[in-house]
Each structure stands twice: as C-alpha cells, then as structure tokens.
C-alpha cells in the first residue's frame, strides 16, 4: 500500500509482499525487510538486453518484508499513480517505485524522446496496482479528451497513462533560424483519452533555446 508522507517521501506498508524501487532510494524502514538488487530492471535476460540496447537502463531493487519502508529521491516531488489495467509511460529516471505485480517494459517513442534528450525509448508500467513517479516540482495532472487535445513542452513532460496518441509537432520556421523563433519550437501533442503528468520545470533539451 503506497502513501505519501509529505510530498517528497513515499511510505510503503508491506505485509509479506514486495515492491520494486529505484536502487538506493530507501531512506528508512521498520520491521523486517530484505533488499535484493534486480539486474536489468528485473525483466529477465531479454529485458536486460533490451534496456541496455535502448539506453533505458534502470537499476532496480526488490524490497520484501513486513513493516513500513520509506523511499525518497533527491528531494524530488513524488506523485502516486494507480493503474487499473492500463499502461503508464514514464522515463526510467522518473520512476521511483512500483508494486511488484506491475509489469515493466520498454517501448519505442519516436521523435518525442529524441526531442527531450531522453533517447528514443521509454519505460512502460502495466497491470493493476500503484506506481510512484518523481518530478521536479509537483506534477500537474492534465486530462486529455477527444474534444480537447493537449500540447506539452518536451522538457516539462514526465509521464502519461491511458489510451493516448502522441505526435510530434514542430514550429520551426525560417524565423527560428534568424533567432526570432517562438521559443517553443518543439511540442508534443496528445490526443485520445488519458492523463498526462507535467512538471513545473523544464529539463534542458536540444530545442530549449530555439
């Protein structure tokens, strides 16, 4: 059972079950816990090779036991996501912890990843359960509906879930080349039905200055 203690610490109450968490993110625990490093994200040999190839490396540990375990990551804000059979797409670096019952994997994202400087692949989390993602500043959760597509700056994108199509839109014109661009040369457009997590801060992206 995941719960937030403050906005920067995740407390997980466990009764013999397990969670997967980012390696080294445990800050405290009480009760009996065992920590086991899972090589290659705990997805077996195939997952390990895929992660190595796609650059979505994830060092994950499995925490199992009875009691409460607290997790935190560089004082980043933590957001809880509950999944009911749908799929969460998140960068490996932003994933803090998942229920052991959730499946993780990698998927191709195309140009969006490239524009964020995160590479062409992203991590997926699937199944029923809870996940915790970290962001720089508390994430704003924005709904995408059929009537209202959402456009997001690649540097502020954290994660999304649901049945959402994403496309890459570019505002590069001859003005950008003259240094008179609109400052938002690359954007990701989300359409469909789902939720998008946006952080109030922009990572440095290649398009950041255009």
């Amino acid at each position: 059972m995941f719960r937030l203690q403050g906005s920067k610490v995740l407390a997980v109450d466990m009764t013999g079950d397990a969670v997967k968490a980012k390696n080294g993110s445990m800050v405290a625990y009480d009760g009996q816990m065992t920590f086991k490093k899972l090589s290659g994200g705990g997805e077996g040999l195939r997952g390990m090779v895929t992660r190595r190839l796609t650059g979505e490396q994830m060092t994950v540990m499995e925490v199992k036991g009875h009691g409460t375990c607290w997790f935190a990551d560089r004082a980043s804000e933590i957001n809880l996501v509950s999944l009911q059979g749908d799929k969460l797409y998140v960068e490996a670096g932003n994933l803090l912890a998942t229920d052991a019952g959730l499946r993780t994997g990698t998927t191709f994202t195309g140009l969006r990843g490239a524009s964020q400087g995160n590479g062409l692949f992203t991590t997926t989390v699937e199944g029923h359960g809870q996940a915790a993602i970290v962001s720089d500043g508390p994430a704003v959760v924005l709904r995408v509906g059929p009537q209202y597509p959402l456009i997001v700056d690649p540097g502020a994108y954290v994660a999304h879930q649901g049945n959402v199509r994403q496309s890459f839109q570019s505002g590069v014109t001859f003005r950008t080349l003259l240094g008179e661009g609109g400052g938002e040369a690359f954007q990701i457009r989300f359409e469909g039905d789902g939720l998008v997590y946006v952080q109030p801060s922009e990572r440095n992206t290649i398009a950041g200055d255009l």
């Binding site: 959402l150 700056d153 502020a156 998008v196 109030p200 200055d209």
Partner: peptide, 20 residues
C-alpha cells in the same frame, strides 16, 4: 512571455517571436 516558460496548453495558441 519569456521564452521557454510554457509547459503545456489546451486549445490553439501560437507563439511568435517579438520580431514577427
């Protein structure tokens, strides 16, 4: 607005440099 401070938007919004 200052360049690069927009994080997301709904609707149709255009961003143009001041020199436009």
């Amino acid at each position: 607005l200052q360049k690069g401070k927009m994080i997301a938007y709904y609707g149709t919004i255009e961003f143009n440099g001041i020199g436009h």
